[in-house]
């Protein structure tokens, strides 16, 4: 068995922040267990990124390189990494919890008779791993009981990218054996959704509405608050899924990322996929009837109450203040 391996992800020729967060987690785990830490970088042209990784405190950086890994496919990545991991036999494999990792890491783990402990927010001694349950309303601590490698992916923003320790690492190349016929899916180039006509990213104030609003007919309630404040209206995913507001007003991991001076979350529970899109806001106000809603975790001001009473009162007060 050879220590901890971190599988990093290239995005548009760069390493995303979450990959550095995974490297930091791998280093922390390696320090806890007193074992070496290596990084694996799958792709078709990995030289430049490998050079960046080579300046970190890693035992080795392995470029898992093959022309067929240029465009991501689950089959290509699973086959290539399976070959690497069988050769290296790590104890722990750490990934960033990206959409790509969600797509292949569970299958890769299954090939080793293992499961991915996914979307981890904390690593404790043991090691044990903490992740969210019930959409963030509870947390669960998981402990590996199997004998094979333990697969873990880390949640975006849960670990500090700037904690990555510098050093020098040897860079090597691993050439997996892959054939075009083994890749059963054919991906197209990524494309943008419909043209964006609202730019929530530059809004100074945002009033954002969630499923607590219950029905589309109730939306004017929050629209009035937004108008009184001079704020843009935004929403959580279910509101856009239902077609009550256009998707371009969705805030979160699959919508827009916003950082206004003021973000008022109305009837939004605060699932991580929503939080990643708005936690850069300077001031967050949360209105929710559930005192334990995770949204209060990121709120500066919290109001526990029925939005159908609080929001009209707030609109009124804002109007008066503006007069």
């Amino acid at each position: 068995m050879s220590g901890v391996w971190v599988v990093v992800e290239e995005r548009d020729g760069r390493m995303g922040r979450i990959s550095w967060e995974a490297v930091a987690t791998g280093q922390e785990l390696g320090a806890q267990l007193g074992v070496p830490v290596c990084a694996a970088l799958p792709g078709a042209q990995t030289e430049a990124l490998a050079a960046e990784l080579a300046a970190k405190a890693l035992n080795r950086v392995v470029r898992v390189e093959h022309a067929l890994l240029g465009a991501y496919t689950a089959d290509g990545f699973t086959l290539a990494l399976e070959q690497l991991l069988r050769a290296e036999q790590p104890e722990f494999v750490v990934f960033p919890h990206t959409y790509q990792v969600r797509d292949y890491a569970p299958a890769l783990a299954a090939r080793f008779g293992q499961v991915l402990i996914g979307d981890v927010t904390q690593v404790g001694t043991g090691p044990v791993f903490t992740r969210q349950l019930m959409q963030g309303r509870l947390s669960g601590t998981y402990c590996p009981t199997g004998s094979g490698p333990c697969f873990v992916s880390v949640q975006s923003g849960a670990f500090r990218a700037d904690a990555v320790k510098a050093g020098t690492a040897e860079v090597t190349v691993f050439s997996p054996v892959l054939e075009a016929g083994q890749l059963r899916t054919r991906p197209s180039e990524p494309f943008r959704g419909s043209a964006q006509t609202v730019d929530l990213g530059s809004a100074q104030m945002i009033v954002s509405v969630g499923r607590g609003i219950k029905e589309a007919e109730n939306l004017p309630l929050v629209q009035e608050l937004a108008t009184a404040l001079g704020a843009e209206l935004a929403a959580s995913r279910p509101i856009c899924d239902n077609g009550w507001l256009p998707m371009e007003r969705q805030v979160g991991s699959s919508g827009q990322t916003v950082a206004p001076k003021l973000y008022v979350a109305v009837g939004i529970s605060g699932a991580i996929q929503h939080l990643v899109g708005m936690k850069g806001s300077q001031c967050v106000v949360a209105i929710n009837k559930d005192a334990d809603a995770p949204i209060f975790e990121v709120a500066d001001y919290g109001i526990v109450g029925d939005l159908f009473e609080v929001v009209p009162a707030l609109t009124e007060a804002v109007k008066n203040a503006r007069q």
Binding site: G113, Q114, V115, I117, V128, Q132, L133, G136, R137, L138, S139, G140, T141, Y142, C143, P144, T145, G146, G148, C150, A286, D292, P294, F296, E297, V298, A299, D300, Y301, G302, I303, V304, G305, D306, E309, V310, P312, A313, L314, E316, A317
Partner: peptide, 27 residues
């Protein structure tokens, strides 16, 4: 091959100012 050892209500990390009172007061 992995066990859910225990579950808990997540600990708050940020100090949120909770505003209390009637809707009119908190507004």
């Amino acid at each position: 091959v992995v066990a859910l050892e225990r579950i808990a209500v997540p600990q708050k990390q940020k100090s949120t100012q909770m505003l209390t009172g009637s809707p009119k007061d908190v507004a």
